[in-house]
Design a protein around this nucleic acid. Structure first.
Length: 139
DNA sequence: GCCAACGTTGGC
DNA sequence: GCCAACGTTGGC
């Protein structure tokens, strides 16, 4: 069963969607949670990511794409962590806030809401599509 | 800045 | 293998 859509979180002061847009490509480093890591390992090149900003924004702000399958995290030598490489696809025309997702029953089972501390998790194709719609954005 | 939620660690 | 203590995340 191939997961095709994911949500990843980032603190914009640490690494924002703007930074990814500027860099054209980035290693998704620093995941130090087993479940999040295991999700990274299930990603495949071409999978699409909702890019969520924690902190002040608390909103999905852009779409990114996996451009390299998981490999060992070079920032944690000797430890069993993974990274993938990601590239920007596009910014959402209008950011989709956590508040608006919480207010929408279609997202009731989204890990963003139910498991607020998990930083990498799958979203269903419908949820992905609906976030794009709320963000007034087409791929 | 606080603190609830919860993942992880370590003592037993 | 349980569970208390601890540390971290992230919303408020």
């Amino acid at each position: 069963m191939a997961e095709r859509h994911w949500l990843v979180k980032s603190e914009p002061d640490t690494y924002s969607f703007d930074a990814l847009t500027r860099d054209k490509k980035s290693m998704w480093e620093g995941v130090r949670n087993f479940e999040a890591r295991n999700n990274l390992r299930k990603m495949r090149v071409g999978d699409l990511l909702l890019f969520y900003h924690t902190g002040d924004d608390k909103a999905v702000v852009g779409i990114a794409r996996v451009c390299r399958d998981a490999y060992p995290d070079p920032t944690a030598p000797g430890e069993d962590w993974s990274v993938v490489d990601v590239e920007p696809v596009r910014r959402l025309t209008s950011p989709v806030t956590l508040a608006s997702l919480k207010a929408d029953a279609r997202f009731a089972d989204l890990a963003l809401i139910k498991r607020s501390r998990l930083s990498v998790f799958p979203v269903t194709p419908d949820q992905f599509k609906n976030v794009l719609k709320l963000g007034k954005t087409k791929l």
